[in-house]
């Protein structure tokens, strides 16, 4: 068939899928940088490991279907998903567990549905949630560079930590490190455990702790990247604003946490999630109005799970829950616009 719309004659050059993915990866850079500096340099290893294994698995899966595996790697979507997964898991997660997460992400999150554009769920969040329910201990095992010094302890050399990451069980394999002395908790988990034990919570102490842990700095890095994406019009404001807005509103009204609002927005995965994860166009709702509903749902569910649920951070589950509601949201949105 002949050419229907002659793009060349109009001189318009559209941004390719590849460019979009590369821009998002670029926008992750400030967040990754502050993560490395303020939380743990191990994240670099996690990212490299996750991206490489994801690319290999993607190539393998596409190859199995008899298609050209290189084409689907080239668009960069799987590298982005792998980087996001690596940024969500604790830095000390053993490599074999991370590999299982990547495997689930690529195979069950993406390829089984037909690859890019067909997956109803956010692949990175499928991998993350699967890891969280499978390895609850290592998936809630956080420590940060700042905490080492705060506890007045000698920071173990990077090499021995890497060595530990290569082993099956990080705690058993490093007897020379006093793991028990560490808090092993993100500020969110700490606040939650205080609340559950009905211990007195001091707002300033919690806030300081959150800052000291490096989470605030890292979240600011992701926020910066998110603003960059908004500026470059890679993402639209609807999802991030509705996610953060609904979460903030509910926190203001109902929170029993003494972590102050800006702090609770800047600890945990809120910034990374609102700008980089929830905005994944494939698994998000279609129209702008439906996207507002989608984002509001994510914010609200995150709040509910954080506040009342069994997990300190509910972002991944909130995204998955809203992902599975997307077809219904789109359907209702369509019915409403038809009536209008």
């Amino acid at each position: 068939m002949n050419i229907i719309v002659d793009k060349h004659a109009t001189g318009v050059k559209a941004r390719s899928t590849q460019t979009i993915m590369l821009l998002v990866l670029l926008a992750l850079a400030p967040g990754i940088l502050s993560y490395t500096v303020f939380i743990s340099p191990l994240v670099i290893f996690n990212i490299i490991f996750a991206v490489c294994s994801a690319i290999a698995l993607e190539w393998f899966a596409v190859h199995l279907r008899g298609d050209n595996g290189l084409n689907s790697i080239k668009d960069g979507s799987i590298a982005l998903a792998a980087a996001l997964l690596a940024l969500c898991v604790p830095p000390a997660l053993p490599f074999w567990q991370l590999f299982i997460g990547v495997l689930i992400m690529v195979m069950l999150g993406k390829q089984v549905f037909g690859g890019i554009g067909h997956n109803p769920f956010n692949p990175a969040m499928v991998g993350y949630a699967a890891l969280l329910v499978s390895f609850p201990q290592s998936m809630t095992f956080w420590f940060t560079a700042a905490e080492w010094s705060a506890m007045g302890m000698q920071k173990p050399p990077l090499l021995s930590l890497l060595n530990a990451k290569l082993s099956l069980d990080i705690i058993a394999s490093t007897p020379n490190i006093q793991w028990d002395g560490l808090t092993q908790a993100t500020p969110l988990e700490h606040a939650r455990s205080l609340r559950l034990q009905s211990l007195p919570q001091s707002s300033t102490e919690l806030n300081q702790r959150a800052f000291g842990s490096g989470w605030i700095q890292t979240s600011l890095g992701f926020l910066l990247g998110g603003v960059f994406l908004l500026y470059k019009k890679v993402i639209r404001w609807h999802i991030p604003v509705s996610v953060i807005g609904s979460f903030a509103l509910l926190s203001l009204l109902f929170s029993t946490n003494s972590l102050s609002l800006p702090w609770s927005l800047l600890t945990g995965a809120m910034m990374l999630g609102a700008f980089f994860i929830a905005t994944d166009p494939v698994s998000a709702a279609s129209s702008r109005r439906a996207q507002l509903v989608f984002g509001t749902g994510i914010g609200a569910l995150t709040f509910v799970i954080r506040e009342f649920g069994g997990y300190p951070e509910g972002f991944a589950f909130a995204v998955l829950l809203m992902n599975l509601s997307v077809p219904l949201i789109d359907h209702i949105d369509l019915l409403m616009s038809q009536r209008a």
């Binding site: 060349h8 979009i20 890019i116 494939v282």
Partner: peptide, 20 residues
């Protein structure tokens, strides 16, 4: 009536529902 150079079109990739 236009005369344009003969070109081969880039094959379509899957839609990522970006909304552009």
């Amino acid at each position: 009536l236009l005369a344009e150079p003969c070109i081969t079109e880039t094959p379509a990739q899957p839609c990522i529902r970006c909304g552009e």
